[in-house]
Write a protein that binds this DNA or RNA. Structure first.
Length: 535
RNA sequence: CGGGGCAUAGCUCAGUCCGGUAGAGCGCCUGGUUUGGGACCAGGAAGUCGUCGGUUCAAAUCCGGCUGCCCCGACCA
């Protein structure tokens, strides 16, 4: 569909009152981009580059609430596309959505000890339920103290297992395969837009099974769902496998994860799937009667992925010209820019743009597009120069831009520009208008694949093998993933983290089976694990 | 929670040392000229200088309290 509102153009719409100062310019000390039309380059300052993209592509703002972000329409549209894809994968594996309360009574929290400990330091707590106005000043009414404090959910295992107690009586009630889309709060000391905020959006799946084997199969299945989403939609290669005990979820027997590598060589945990054993069913005394009539505790899993994925998306593909979004997640697939020096020159270009937009919307809807029509916009800006408009659409990461100017009209042709190859190098001139829709369709698939291949190549190029701790210490100063032997103990992991700031990111399933000795203690090790510095 | 920095127009900042009519660039609005890689001219709108108090004839500026935000560190999806 072409956009309804004419004259719509990539302009800043900074409304609102006082945004906090110095947000993207590193407080007082930072250096603003030399040319404020351009964003900071990745080599100059990677985290400033990231902030510039988030701000200039209008994905999100810092809000006036500490640690919390405002996700703007451009950013939220990406999240909606992510949700649609992930939710589809959940449904295809038999899961259903439900919703559980935001507030969790403190006593629930206490029931599972490890989890309570794991999250204790970052919980928001509701203590009162009323305000009162004294001399025009609003204050908490001390009379309205809650008998039992409520925790704002950092994750929902406790409230959900408390609920499951009422839902599970018989083996016939199992498996219970439930997911919820919601917000959670983890009171973070330091936040970064999308990557770590005090409140974030996510989904959390919570399943209950009659047997351990079934629950473990579910845990594995769901991490593979995340892998599929990361690779096929986000075009983001990931390593898959268990976390070390030191890195697992509090309350889990083990945690499986997908682990991605960002362009700056830091790792990002992008999704986790936990095998919870009977920890929660026992904590909440959930039992069912098995086929043989015996009372048993069900086996649990939980799994989650959050708006952090948007940060991962940005840091996997984007470049110094701005955001790059893989076609399958792009809020806008194609933008068509009619040009011309005068209304007379422009009119036929605009008409051709409209016709092309309609033709693109008629392309077959297949799985690649989630069975939706392609999302097409017409840029009717007449005020800004073409160069300005092109740069602005590149900044926003639209995968394909079509340019139609007077010279093209003479040949009934257009120019296709692909975002994964920025600037003039990514342009194909003289594409006949009547075959443009098919070419655009092909280009979408090619861009999607190219982004994945490119990201995988970049990641693989960082992968190294360390054979001694000294070697490791040197290697870790360079970005990327490092394979190394580790004795499997928490103590060694902690020591390595303390001395090098690197953590065990994942013990990949498909890593080479190669016995050796721990690089620190010399104890035997079955296989190498992946170390990196992480977000 | 420690260490540092900052708070003046929508954004980025100057002005603060040395008190005296509130500034610039970008953006925005209007008109005109433009338009194939971030155009130009002219005009215009826009700020209780974070907040409370003190000093002073006079405070963005000096002094004190408070608040908020950013960066670095510890902690973390």
């Amino acid at each position: 569909m072409s956009d309804q509102k004419g004259g719509n153009q990539p302009a800043n719409n900074n409304q609102g009152k006082k945004q906090q100062k110095g947000g993207n310019l590193a407080g007082g000390g930072g250096t603003p981009p030399a040319d404020d039309k351009k964003i900071t380059s990745r080599t100059a300052d990677y985290s400033q580059w990231y902030l510039d993209i988030v701000r200039r592509a209008e994905l999100a703002d810092n809000s006036d609430v500490r640690g919390c972000m405002v996700i703007k329409p451009n950013g939220y549209a990406i999240w909606e596309n992510m949700q649609r894809a992930i939710d589809g994968l959940f449904k295809a594996t038999g899961h259903v959505n439900a919703y559980f309360p935001l507030f969790i009574p403190k006593s629930f929290f206490q029931k599972e000890e490890q989890m309570a400990e794991g999250f204790a330091k970052e919980c928001a707590v509701v203590t009162h339920y009323r305000l009162k106005s004294t001399n025009g000043k609003i204050e908490v009414d001390p009379e309205a103290k809650l008998e039992e404090e409520l925790i704002v959910r950092p994750t929902s295992e406790t409230i959900i297992w408390n609920t499951y107690k009422g839902w599970i009586q018989s083996y016939r009630d199992l498996p219970l395969l439930i997911n919820q889309w919601c917000n959670v709060v983890r009171w973070e000391m330091r936040t970064r837009l999308f990557l770590r905020t005090s409140e974030f959006l996510w989904q959390e799946g919570h399943t209950a099974h009659a047997t351990q084997a079934e629950a473990e199969a579910e845990t594995l299945q769901m991490v593979n769902v995340y892998r599929q989403f990361a690779e096929d939609w986000m075009a983001m290669p990931v390593l898959v496998g268990p976390k070390s005990d030191g890195q697992k979820f509090p309350g889990a027997i083990y945690t499986l994860c997908i682990e991605a590598l960002m362009q700056d060589g830091k790792a990002l945990q992008a999704g986790t799937s936990h095998f919870l054993g009977q920890n929660f069913s026992k904590a909440f005394d959930v039992q069912f009667t098995a086929e043989d009539g015996k009372r048993e505790f069900p086996w649990a899993t939980s799994w989650g992925a959050s708006t952090r994925l948007i940060g991962g998306l940005i840091m996997t593909h984007s470049d110094d010209n701005g955001l790059v979004i893989p076609p399958r997640l792009a809020p806008t697939h194609v933008v068509i820019c009619p040009m011309g020096r005068s209304d007379e020159e422009r009119a036929p270009c605009t008409a051709a743009a409209e016709k092309l937009a309609a033709a693109i919307a008629e392309l077959p809807r297949d799985d690649f597009y989630g069975y939706q029509p392609l999302r097409v916009k017409i840029d009717r800006d007449t005020k800004n120069s073409p160069g300005h408009r092109f740069a602005e659409w590149e900044l926003r990461g639209v995968p394909v831009r079509v340019e139609i100017g007077p010279k093209d009209m003479e040949k009934s042709a257009c120019v296709l520009a692909r975002r994964d190859i920025p600037g003039k190098e990514g342009k194909t001139m003289g594409v006949p208008l009547d075959v443009a829709p098919q070419q655009i369709d092909a280009l979408m698939r090619e861009i999607q694949k190219n982004l994945f291949d490119r990201a995988k190549k970049a990641r693989d190029a960082t992968m190294r093998t360390a054979n001694s701790y000294d070697e490791f210490k040197q290697m870790i100063e360079q970005p990327g993933f490092i394979w190394a032997h580790w004795d499997g103990t928490r103590a060694t992991e902690d020591k390595i983290q303390e001395e090098t700031k690197a953590t065990i990111r994942v013990i990949p399933f498909d890593g080479p089976k190669e016995a050796g000795q721990c690089m620190v203690t010399g104890q035997p090790s079955e296989k190498r694990v992946i170390f990196a510095r992480a977000y």
